[in-house]
Amino acid sequence: MFNGEQRVTRKPVKRVHKQARDILIYGVSIILAIIYLVPFYWTVLKAFRNSIFANFPPDMNPLSKTSLAYFLTNLKTVWGFGDFPLWYLNSVVVSVAVVAGSVFVGSLAGYAFARLKFPGRDLLFYAVLATLMIPFPVISIASYVFMLDIHWLSTYQGLIFPQIASALDVFIMRQYFMTIPEEVEFAAKIDGLKPWQIFFKVSAPMAAPAIAAATIFSFISSWNNFLWPLMEVHSLNLFTLPLVLNFFKGANGTQIYWNQMMTVNILTIIPTVVIFALFEKYFIRGISIDVSAR
C-alpha cells in the first residue's frame, strides 16, 4: 500500500506462487479423497462378483452388464439367507423408534432447559451433562443384568429404550432454542398461549434444523450400534444389521463368501451414507454441538 514499487515487482511472483499452492492443495485433496474411496470401491467390486475366488486383477468396472447380473444374484442369495428381510426391518424399526423417542424426549427437555424457569433447573442440567461422562460400555453389564431382571432380554423394548435417553439430543435442542429470539415467544405469550402451546405451535416448528440434526445423529448412532444389540439380543428374530454382518462372517466356518458378505455390507452402509449425503450440514452441526457440550 505504502510501497508501490515493491508491490508491482512482487505481485506476479506471488500469483504464480499462489497458483502452485492451489494446485498442490487441490491435488492432495483429490488424492486423499481417492484413498478414502478405494476401500468402498473394492467393497462394491466384491459385491459385483459371482464367486469367492475373485479373478485377479478383476473386471474393474462394477457397472458392466455381467457384474450387475452377479450383483442381482448375490442380492437374491443374501435376501433369502435366514430371515434377512426381517433383520433389515428390525434395524429400521429399532432406529426409527429410537429416533422418535429420543428426539421427542430431547426436544421437550431441551426447551425446558433453554426457556422455562423451574426450581433446580441448573442442577438437573448438570446431571444431564454428567451422563456424558459415563460411557455406555462401562454400564452395559449392569444394563444387561437389569434387562435380565425385568425379563426384557431379546425384546424390542429392551433394544430400544436404553438407547433413547440421549443427553446429546437435549444439548442440540437446548442450544438451538436459546438462539430463537425471546420476542417471538413473548408475542405468543401476549396472545394468551400457554407455555406448552408456545412450545408445540411456535418454538418447535422454528427449531426444525435442530430437530433434523438430532434426528440424523441419533439415527446413525442407533443404526450402527453393535455392543448393545450384541448383549441384549439372544434370539435370531431380533437381529439387527450389525449383528447380521458379524453372524454372516462366521456362517460358513472359516470360509468367507466375500461377494455375499460385501452385498450385506453395502445394504447396511447405504442408508447412513445416503442420509449423510442428503443432510451433511445438519450432521456436522450435530457433531460440533456434541463436542462443545463436553
Binding site: Y111, A112, F113, F118, L124, F199
Partner: peptide, 11 residues
C-alpha cells in the same frame, strides 16, 4: 414452572 417440570420428566 409446572410445564418445565413436566417437560423434563420423560428425560
Amino acid at each position: 414452572r409446572t410445564t418445565g417440570i413436566i417437560f423434563i420428566i420423560p428425560l
